[in-house]
Amino acid sequence: MRILGLAGWSGAGKTTLLKGLIPELRGRGLRVSTVKHAHHAFDVDVPGKDSHTHREAGAEQVLVSSANRWALMTELRGAPEPPLAELLARLNTVDIVLIEGFKRDSHPKIEVHRAANGKPWLHPDDPRVLAVAADVAPAALPHAHLDDIPAVADLVLRFAEPL
């Protein structure tokens, strides 16, 4: 299993890029999974559902299953957020795992950058940024335009590293 992160400031286009990359990589015959870092207040469960009631009653884990999918929710209840390596270890084996967010972690990354955001580049301060997907080209790193999904997929396959 190989991993590669897409790191960038909010609004740079990471999720939009992933939306195009996943089917592109699948079309090349690869099995793809993702890990997404979310804001503190995110929730996949909703009030009124039995699973939500179970969690609110104090269950540490709730596994919801149907004929289409299953999901395991684990309440941290004050424990620290698990490190990225621990989260990756919970995934089924696939060809490549794309990581959205976790920009401060030390894994191989493609920086996603949009000039209109006015945010600074990440790569000058992060040696694990190996390439860039942006609407402007940096001088020192391999790059592809944000909208050129096949070219970004080529960068993903070039720079993804074994877990």
Rank of each mutant, 00 (worst) to 15 (best):
L4Q: 04
R158Q: 15
E56H: 06
I110F: 02
L4M: 06
S10N: 09
L163P: 11
K19A: 14
A79I: 01
A140N: 15
P83W: 01
L163E: 14
H113P: 04
S10I: 02
D43A: 13
L157N: 02
I22A: 12
V136W: 04
R55I: 06
D126G: 02
V94E: 15
G5C: 07
P150K: 03
D50E: 14
L91N: 07
T53W: 10
K19F: 02
A115Q: 13
G5P: 12
E161N: 03
L6H: 02
A151W: 00
V32Y: 10
M73L: 15
G20N: 07
L163G: 12
A140M: 09
D95V: 11
A7V: 06
V112A: 04
E60W: 10
K109R: 13
V156H: 00
K49Q: 12
I96C: 15
S65G: 11
P162Y: 08
A140R: 13
E56P: 01
A38D: 13
V152I: 11
P80L: 07
A89H: 10
P127S: 13
A139M: 09
V32A: 10
S66I: 08
R104H: 14
G20L: 05
V35A: 03
A79V: 00
V132C: 08
A139H: 11
P82N: 11
K36V: 12
T16Q: 00
L88Y: 02
H54A: 10
G29R: 11
A153E: 01
F102C: 09
E100L: 03
L146N: 04
G118Q: 08
K36D: 01
R114T: 09
E86M: 03
E86C: 01
L63E: 08
T34W: 07
E60N: 12
G101E: 03
S106N: 13
A134H: 10
P138R: 07
I110A: 06
R69S: 11
A140L: 12
K19V: 10
P124S: 08
I96K: 03
P80T: 06
T74V: 14
A79W: 00
N117D: 14
P83A: 12
A57Q: 11
A59H: 11
F102A: 07
G20D: 03
D135K: 04
E81Y: 03
P23I: 10
R2Q: 15
D126N: 14
S106P: 02
L6Q: 04
R31K: 14
L87N: 03
D95G: 07
A134W: 09
H37Q: 15
L84T: 06
P138C: 09
A41P: 00
L18S: 07
F159H: 13
I96E: 06
P80A: 13
A134P: 07
H143C: 14
G78I: 10
A12E: 11
P124N: 08
R104K: 15
A57F: 05
V132R: 09
A38V: 14
P127N: 05
G29C: 08
G8L: 01
P124R: 06
E111H: 05
L88P: 08
N117M: 14
N117A: 07
E111L: 09
A71W: 03
D50N: 12
L122K: 11
V62H: 05
D154M: 00
K103P: 05
H37C: 02
I3Q: 02
V44R: 12
I99N: 01
L76Y: 10
A140Q: 14
